[in-house]
């Protein structure tokens, strides 16, 4: 069965995690996404999009499902993996106090999961004060420190919280983003390659093929990927029969073994203006 990509959405109470999830569920991204949330009551789906709803599960006409995670998050992940038909992508909303990386690490450890990254949501109105709070500040800052992508909510005139400083992970203003799905899910593999096609006007998507590679060469190439490449994934053929599945999100690189890769195929995505297909093409095929 397919490896299930897992993305974890972190951020303190009230940062805007639920709003982000509501946006993701309503967008027409064409993927069957399963979202596990903390506060089921706050999920707000247009009734016209709902095909069924029960005490702990909402099913949407676009194939997405939203459910509560119950008492044991990891057991719930196990239950999803054991389903006869896995969803295309699993998104977990971490609790407002959780270290989202602690959850996302499971995607690096579990062979049946692939790493979809940690996205931390930061509230522009409150982050400065929260990050200085003597009781909770260290934990709030920690959620941002572990992020692969930082999304800032509630900005006014594009001003970012000063306490964010200059983090290594890319920072994006949610007010300037029309579709959040490409950031959370990435581009989809396996569709007919659309050279330099734009999956959304705000993003640049690129897909590539390439020569077989060794793990060392692959690792080195990924370590030197262009800035602005938010998400990158695909299957890479090795030279000695050991093939690879690759996932990069923000700063993270995950390489896992794969079987029977006939042709190397990779896709990348980034916000327009920060990246272009030419740069990506040159990077992938360069030395």
């Amino acid at each position: 069965m397919n490896r299930l990509p897992l993305t974890v959405i972190g951020g303190y109470l009230g940062a805007g995690k639920t709003t982000l999830i509501n946006r993701l569920l309503a967008e027409g991204h064409g993927q069957r996404v399963l979202v596990m949330v903390n506060d089921f009551g706050a999920i707000n789906i247009d009734a016209a999009l709902l095909t069924s709803s029960s005490e702990d599960t909402l099913e949407l006409s676009n194939g997405c499902v939203c459910c509560t995670m119950g008492a044991d998050l990891f057991m719930a992940v196990g239950d999803v993996l054991d389903r006869p038909k896995r969803p295309d992508h699993l998104v977990i909303e971490a609790s407002g106090i959780a270290d989202p990386a602690r959850i996302a690490q499971v995607a690096l450890a579990e062979p049946d999961l692939s790493y979809g990254g940690v996205i931390s949501v930061v509230d522009a109105l409150n982050f400065d004060a929260l990050s200085r709070d003597v009781q909770i500040g260290a934990q709030v800052r920690g959620q941002v420190d572990v992020a692969d992508l930082i999304l800032v909510s509630k900005t006014q005139n594009g001003a970012l919280p000063t306490a964010l400083g200059l983090p290594k992970a890319p920072v994006l203003d949610l007010a300037l983003i029309d579709d959040v799905a490409p950031l959370i899910l990435g581009a989809t593999l396996g569709q007919a390659p659309k050279p330099t096609a734009e999956i959304h006007p705000a993003y640049v998507a690129w897909s590539g093929t390439g020569e077989p590679s060794t793990r060392t060469a692959l690792q080195s190439k990924l370590d030197n990927r262009p800035k602005g490449l938010m998400r990158f994934k695909g299957f890479v053929q090795g030279i000695d029969g050991s093939d690879f599945e690759v996932h990069c999100v923000g700063l993270s690189v995950s390489i896992k073994p794969a079987r029977n890769v006939q042709n190397t195929q990779v896709v990348g995505i980034g916000p327009k203006g920060r990246i272009d297909a030419k740069t990506l093409e040159a990077w992938w095929h360069g030395d």
Partner: peptide, 8 residues
């Protein structure tokens, strides 16, 4: 160490 690594 920790649940993520113990889970598999």
């Amino acid at each position: 160490q920790e649940m993520a690594a113990m889970f598999p």
